[in-house]
């Protein structure tokens, strides 16, 4: 466990603390290499690539766009609802979201 946390501290984008999950979605769904994936997400968010891992920028942006925040906010989009927003923002298909939408008749 300590090893995984050490890698996160040393090299990780920060997951939902920042934009790590968003960049990961692009590698998974479009096979983008790291720099291409970062550039794509930054363009969609309207920020500089350098700010993708800046908590001070990403926290507010995630909150405003409904992408889910790392701190738990009552009434804020979380889980599958946040992923719906992420899929929409990034123009990708997330399979769990597609299933949820089909169940909801969307």
């Amino acid at each position: 466990m300590g090893m995984a946390i050490a890698h996160i501290m040393a090299s990780c984008m920060g997951g939902i603390r920042t934009a790590g999950d968003l960049v990961a979605w692009m590698q998974m769904t479009r096979k983008m290499k790291i720099n291409e994936a970062k550039a794509y997400v930054a363009e969609k968010l309207g920020i500089e690539v350098f700010d993708l891992t800046n908590e001070e920028v990403m926290r507010e942006l995630r909150k405003d766009l409904g992408l889910g925040t790392v701190t738990s906010i009552a009434g804020g989009p979380k889980g599958i609802r946040a992923k719906m927003k992420i899929a929409e923002l990034l123009d990708i298909k997330i399979r769990s979201v597609e299933l949820f939408k089909s169940q909801m008749g969307l």
């Binding site: 995984a4 890698h7 090299s11 990780c12 920060g14 960049v23």
Partner: peptide, 18 residues
């Protein structure tokens, strides 16, 4: 004791059963 990548050079850390 520990080191890290430079700001802006972070990458995706996926996992295998962490």
């Amino acid at each position: 004791r520990i080191v890290s990548v430079n700001p802006g050079e972070e990458v995706i850390v996926s996992d295998d059963g962490t």
